[in-house]
Amino acid sequence: MIQYAGIILMLIGIYGLLTDKNVIKIIVSLNVFELGLNVFIISVGFVKDGVAPILTSVNNHSGLIFVDPLPQALVLTAIVIGLGTTALGLAFARRIYMKYGTLDLEEIGGNN
C-alpha cells in the first residue's frame, strides 16, 4: 500500500515541476519527488513480519527473517545529499532574486 503512495507522490512531484513557475515552489516539488522516491526504494526491501536489520539481545542470531538492509543504506545517504542539493538550489534562488528582483521564471525570461 505504501509502495503505491510512493509512486503517486513521485507523479505529484513531476506535476509540480511541470506546472509551477516560482523557483521556490519548483524546489519544493523536487523535494516531494525525492520523498516519494525514498519511500518507494525502502518499500522494495520490505518483508512482511520481518524484523528491523539490527542484531540485539532479543533478535540475537542471523537466521531470523530480516528486512533487506541494502535499500536502507542507499536511502540513508540519499537523504543527506538531498539536504545539500536543496540548500544549493536555495542559494541560487537568492542570487536570482538579487539580480532580477523576482522569483517568477517567465518574468526573468521576458527581461532578457
Binding site: Y4, V44, K48, H61, S62, G63, D68
Partner: peptide
C-alpha cells in the same frame, strides 16, 4: 509489497557477514 525474498539477493551475504564463503549463523 511485503514479499521481498532477501535470501535470493546480494544482501544475504551482508546479513551472514560473509560474502565469499558458505554461510554460518551469527549470534
Amino acid at each position: 509489497y511485503g514479499e521481498a525474498k532477501v535470501a535470493d539477493r546480494v544482501s544475504e551475504g551482508y546479513i551472514m557477514k560473509n560474502v565469499t564463503e558458505a554461510n554460518t549463523d551469527v549470534v
